[in-house]
């Protein structure tokens, strides 16, 4: 087995919430769905209501597509939350608990460590959450096979192929979300190596920069960039045409985000390598 697989396994063991939260939500969701569909008399009394604000409005149609969209959005939001929490915690935890020297004593390069942590956050966590979608979809399909017309009305037409398609769509959508999150992920990895509250610093920092650019320097470009990039993951989760979200943001902002992300990754690698931010070393190679 490749060392990176052992490293991914170690991340799974260390951050148990990544598996436990989706499992808990799956069991809870299945329990609720099970109680609803088994108690078919109450189906006539079910009504779904959604409240939304602001930018979600153009994507309202997605919510009306039924339970599958709700499950997909919920699982996507959980995945996004877990990824961000993981990225903010992983390097900080090693530093705070004192195990950093042990991990550094292993023959693993800093680039490999970063690649594994990014892959864990942006690929493995979405894949784990996709199992939540797959299980729920399979459950609904199974229920549709065995239950009455009322249930079919609620769930709509479904088949095993639909289940697989929905799952693949979710995986594809989450990979796009991961692409959108990648620059922020690099930023969190860098910040978490030197600061104990990286999420707070990143959020407050982003708002401060937005406010400064808008009200002090009267320059809306920075604020628009931050707004566009920070809204991308949720927009992707709720969009019926995820690729259109990339088009809305525009290639310039996306390229800029990736350039900043690359800079953050270089800074993060430098901090990991030198134990401190060494500006000269950053540009020496």
């Amino acid at each position: 087995m490749h060392p990176s697989l052992f490293m991914l396994e170690k991340e799974l063991l260390e951050h148990k919430i990544v598996t436990r939260l989706p499992l808990f939500l799956l069991l809870t969701g299945l329990f609720i769905l099970g109680s609803i569909v088994l108690n078919t008399d109450s189906l006539n009394n079910i009504s779904l209501q959604f409240n939304y604000q602001g930018e979600l409005a153009p994507n309202t149609a997605d919510f009306t597509q039924g339970l599958s969209s709700i499950i997909s959005f919920g699982a996507g939001a959980v995945s996004l939350l877990l990824s961000i929490l993981y990225l903010a915690k992983t390097f900080r935890k090693e530093r705070q608990e004192g195990s950093l020297m042990f991990w550094r004593s292993m023959p693993v390069s800093d680039a490999m460590t970063h690649a594994v942590k990014l892959a864990f956050a942006l690929i493995l966590i979405p894949l784990i959450c996709s199992l939540l979608v797959l299980s729920a979809e399979l459950f609904l399909w199974f229920v549709s096979l065995t239950n009455s017309h009322d249930v079919m009305q609620l769930l709509g037409e479904t088949s095993l192929l639909c289940v697989l398609l929905n799952w693949l769509m979710f995986v594809a959508k989450m990979l796009l979300v991961s692409l959108a999150v990648l620059p922020v992920a690099c930023l969190l990895l860098a910040v978490s190596q030197v600061i104990n509250s990286p999420l707070l610093v990143v959020v407050i920092g982003a708002y401060t920069v937005k406010l400064l650019s808008s009200y002090v320097f009267a320059f809306e470009g920075v604020a628009t960039f931050i707004r566009a990039i920070s809204a991308m993951p949720i927009s992707l989760l709720t969009a019926s045409q995820p690729l259109a979200v990339f088009a809305q943001v525009g290639w310039f902002y996306f390229l800029l985000a990736y350039l900043l992300g690359a800079l953050c990754l270089m800074v993060s690698l430098s901090i990991r390598k030198h134990g401190e931010l060494d500006i000269r070393a950053l540009f020496s190679r």
Binding site: L13, S99, F102, W103
Partner: peptide, 14 residues
């Protein structure tokens, strides 16, 4: 410096 959350078997495997 050993990771406290691991078991002995896990650290050997890693």
């Amino acid at each position: 410096v050993l990771p406290q959350w691991m078991t002995v078997a896990q650290i050997l495997r890693y």
